[in-house]
Nucleic acid binder design. Structure first.
Length: 853
RNA sequence: GCGGACGUGGCGAAAAGGUAGACGCAGCAGACUUAAAAUCUGCUCCGGGCAACCGGGUGCGGGUUCGAGUCCCGCCGUCCGCACCA
């Protein structure tokens, strides 16, 4: 009994594809294209099976579309800038570039072993000046188009690392690496004006039909549109106005205070003369931004002593407070408080004994007895206690109040968004230098295009905390391009999301001297199928959508949406194991002893934990190399496709992969030692076949139709099940029957073709065994013959009162009346009718008969 | 708090409103073998029955329908995203 020699076969076919450059493509205007892209990896060290699941799905799509005749672009590259390289450099006393390139080498070799159909001639690494020089140019164009700007902004500052931290890097108020308490600091930073496209980005989500609903919702929430009004309150005794944003202008008569953010300009001004307020503001700024801190934080405020004049009633004054729960970044940094109809305002009012004035009456409630207790009233009702708004519904009152504000010049309707401009400055070395120069006399001067790229210096020292570019002895000192006086370079680098916001464009013409060749982009873009993790649902995908629009505005291309189709795949999980002392164990360190208990190598008991996403820290990872060494790439690929729907998490199990390995060998035996002598390829199949053989042919053609449909809809697990059904059917073929050998050949060829995108090496090997010349990768996708998928005989379910009582084998498309007669004639049916005539009979052709007694 | 997704055998799962559990994993029994591995065959939702068969069954409670895992209403649970967002 022979075993499939995947080692030999996989190397052989990989060589075959490489030598013939089968997957290198060029734009062919007029020929239908298909651009398949998997989110490119950060070269962190080694590929894990989670990566491979992602790339396998992409490879199935790429090979399938190719077989369908599309000109398929399927590239791969490296998102190569980022903090881990710097951390590794510090830890290993190496250089980020060295570490990164080593990882790329390792990971590329791993990808090659998997047999993915990439056009390697388009490989890119974003840390290469040939890549990042183009984004420096883009930045200068954005600057000229007012899509990039510099401003002071509050940032999370790690005082030990001497750098800005992203919100995600602040854990419980501390730096994720240093553990130092994070401070808020006002820092001058570069921003990209994503808010110039807010409404466009929001509106266009509706057109992203081939995106998961979930991702579209997440982006909508992230942009966070809310319609309301800005309202101007005058500070009593002055002409000065305070602007407030609200969505509830209908409740203005319920206002009992104004609250300013601690960083509101007015608050800061008052604090100059009010030491108590200054101390309060300082305390607010020290407070962490983490979820836990906010959850536990009490509403706290400080009365400024100032009062504001009510816009609808000048005789009414409300106190102005500074409150810790008002965000400077949202709306105008100031709110009016209506405790009766807002949870936070109510908490605040109760604490500081401010009035609670209900102005919306629930339907049917008695205005004389209605009072607010523990909870505010948030639903619709009738407005009261509100002068000209009395009697209106909430919606009508919103409109009426807004109109009155506009007429009085004390406010106007407006829309606020949660989305903020994208801060791109990082005080880091291993990133793309921001191409500007700071000059004492000329201010900010863009680096002239002829001086691009601004490259990173190689001789850097990571021993000193902070930004190595900043403390490099010479790098930042340059003459001002405008006046020639000594000036200094910007030492911040771009956020690494900058690189991933346009790499899909670079792939269209990866060696172009410009960022990309316009004709190549016009041909290949948009990406037809993008595949990646849900963790990028917002940031990367939103930034890329923005970038595409910004580049369009700067004349680079004519495209709004970069990704026509998006698929977010689930994670790969594995059971976790812990020793009795709580240390995490690798799966290969765990064995089963004679009594069936889990033990480690030394026989100590092991505790099996939850099934979780594979992570290095919990050691529940399986090494890709070990899997491929033991079972081969095809087995790993099929397992990743077969066990769970692709959008759901996949549980990696040893027994699961072994099951696939058994199947691989079964396929191999079926072609290398077929149960009947196969006729040579290309012979027509006899048209008259015994029923058992005809059935197998039907299964064959049904499998083609079903697998085609499943691949179109990303249902890989079902496609695998259909292919296995066909395999089972071929095993049951009566080999001695007339035409059986022909049907067997047809079935085996179908298996090879359908498996081609999933297990390309084995499929090629099968194809060759079946006597074909050349590569299966160049064969067309099989067509199912509709005539051959139709059953002649159907089994119909027969129900009495909705319960299954019998089945009926009957020729397909038998007339309903005849079906009814046949069903009523069944003894099982007669028994349940007990001699009564049926009241009603429903016949669904070829499916079911339901007899209502 | 707001928004969303999902609840089906021992496990991963499948079912255009039409025979629930395809396909696989694990398990049990058997064949081959001196033996094991590999391979092959059969069984495997629950309860009752020697059996044909009968009853029950898709988180819980209702509803629509000839017919509901699927549609509608109300609960319960799990997971995810956002969150002092005014």
């Amino acid at each position: 009994m022979s075993r499939y020699n995947f080692r030999e076969s996989e190397a052989k076919w990989q060589r075959h594809w490489r030598e013939r450059r089968l997957f290198e493509v060029t734009a062919e205007p007029g020929r239908p294209k298909y651009y398949v892209l998997e989110m490119f990896p950060y070269p962190s060290g080694k590929l894990h099976v989670g990566h491979v699941r992602n790339y396998t799905m992409g490879d199935v799509v790429a090979r399938y579309r190719r077989a369908q005749g599309f000109n398929v672009l399927h590239p791969m590259g490296w998102d190569a800038f980022g903090l881990p390289a710097e951390n590794a450099a510090m830890a290993e006393n190496s250089h980020p570039a060295v570490w990164t390139h080593e990882n790329i080498r390792t990971m590329r070799a791993q990808l090659e072993r998997m047999g993915f159909a990439y056009d390697w001639s388009r490989e890119i690494a974003t840390c290469h000046p040939d890549y990042y020089r183009h984004e420096q140019k883009m930045f200068l164009d954005f600057l000229a188009a007012d899509l990039a700007y510099r401003r002071e902004s509050w940032v999370n500052w790690d005082p030990v690392e001497n750098t800005v931290l992203a919100n995600e890097q602040v854990i419980d108020g501390r730096g994720w690496r240093s553990g130092a308490i994070v401070e808020k600091r006002l820092l001058s930073q570069w921003f990209l004006r994503i808010t110039a496209f807010t409404e466009e980005l929001l509106e266009a989500i509706g057109g992203l039909e081939r995106w998961p609903e979930r991702v579209r919702l997440m982006q909508e929430n992230w942009i966070g549109r809310s319609d309301g009004a800005r309202v101007f309150f005058t500070i009593a005794g002055t002409d000065e106005r305070i602007e407030v944003f609200t969505t509830r202008q209908d409740t203005l008569f319920g206002a009992s205070f104004l609250a300013l953010s601690p960083n509101h300009p007015l608050a800061l001004r008052v604090a100059e003369k009010d030491a108590g307020l200054a101390a309060f503001i300082a305390e607010c700024n020290r407070m962490g931004t983490s979820e836990a801190v906010i959850e536990a934080a009490e509403k706290r405020g400080y009365a400024t002593g100032l009062e504001a004049v009510h816009p609808f009633d000048e005789s009414r004054h409300v106190p102005i407070w500074v409150a810790n729960f008002v965000l400077m970044e949202y709306g105008s940094g100031a709110i009016f408080g209506c405790p009766a109809h807002d949870q936070r305002d109510l908490e605040f009012a109760r604490k500081y004994r401010l009035p609670v004035i209900p102005v919306v009456l629930p339907l049917g409630a008695d205005p004389a007895n209605f009072a607010i207790g523990e909870t505010p009233y948030l639903d619709d009702g009738t407005v009261f206690n509100s002068a000209f708004l009395d009697g209106l519904s909430v919606a009508d009152a919103k409109r009426a109040a807004a109109e009155r504000l506009e007429a009085l010049g004390r406010g106007e309707r407006t829309t606020a968004y949660r989305l903020r401009d994208w801060g791109v400055s990082r005080q880091r070395y291993w990133g793309c230098p921001i191409p500007v120069i700071h000059c004492e006399s000329c201010g900010i001067v863009p680096v002239p295009e002829k001086d691009l790229p601004v490259t990173l210096p190689e001789d850097v020292d990571f021993a000193v905390p902070g930004n190595p570019l900043d403390h490099h002895p010479t790098w930042k000192h340059v003459p001002c391009p405008r006046c020639g006086q000594p000036a200094r370079r910007e030492t911040d680098t771009f956020d690494t999301f900058f690189e991933s916001s346009w790499y899909f464009l670079r792939f269209c013409s990866a060696r172009a001297p410009t960022a990309f060749d316009r004709q190549a982009v016009d041909y290949w873009m948009p990406v037809d199928q993008y595949i990646g993790g849900i963790e990028h649902a917002v940031l990367h995908l939103l930034y890329s959508r923005f970038f595409t629009r910004a580049l369009k505005r700067c004349g680079y291309l004519d495209l709004d949406e970069p990704f026509a189709g998006l698929f977010t795949q689930g994670m790969v999980c594995h059971q976790t194991y812990q020793s009795e002392t709580g240390e995490w164990l690798f799966p290969e360190e765990v064995e089963t002893d004679g009594a069936g208990r889990l033990v480690d190598a030394a026989g100590r008991e092991v505790i099996a934990g939850r099934h979780e996403k594979m992570s290095k820290s919990k050691r529940n990872v399986v090494g890709l190399d070990a899997i491929v060494d033991t079972y081969g790439a095809d087995t790993a690929r099929l397992y990743l496709l077969s066990d769970s729907p692709p959008e759901r998490d996949l549980e990696w199990t040893e027994t699961g992969i072994e099951g696939i390995w058994r199947y691989v060998n079964r396929l191999w035996r079926l072609v290398s030692e077929p149960p009947a002598t196969l006729p040579p390829p290309g012979l027509p199949i006899p048209s008259r076949l015994p029923a058992e053989v005809a059935t197998v042919r039907r299964t064959n053609h049904k499998a083609i139709a079903a697998v085609t449909d499943d691949l179109d809809k990303f249902r890989f697990n079902r496609a695998v099940a259909r292919i296995r059904e066909l395999t089972n059917a071929l095993d049951e073929l009566p080999v001695g029957a007339p035409g059986a050998a022909h049907a067997l050949r047809e079935g085996l060829e179908t298996l090879a073709r359908l498996l081609g995108p999933m297990m390309p090496h084995l499929a090629e090997e099968m194809w060759e065994q079946l006597g074909h010349e050349g590569s299966l990768a160049e064969e067309a996708w099989p067509q199912s013959d509709p005539e051959l998928t139709r059953d002649e005989q159907v089994t119909m379910a027969v129900q009495v009162n909705g319960k299954l009582r019998a089945t009926l084998d009957i020729p397909r498309d038998t007339a309903s009346a005849a079906v009814e007669d046949a069903a009523l004639a069944l003894p099982q049916v007669a028994r349940w009718l007990e001699g009564h005539a049926p009241r009603k009979v429903i016949v669904v052709p070829n499916r079911i008969v339901n007899i209502v007694a």
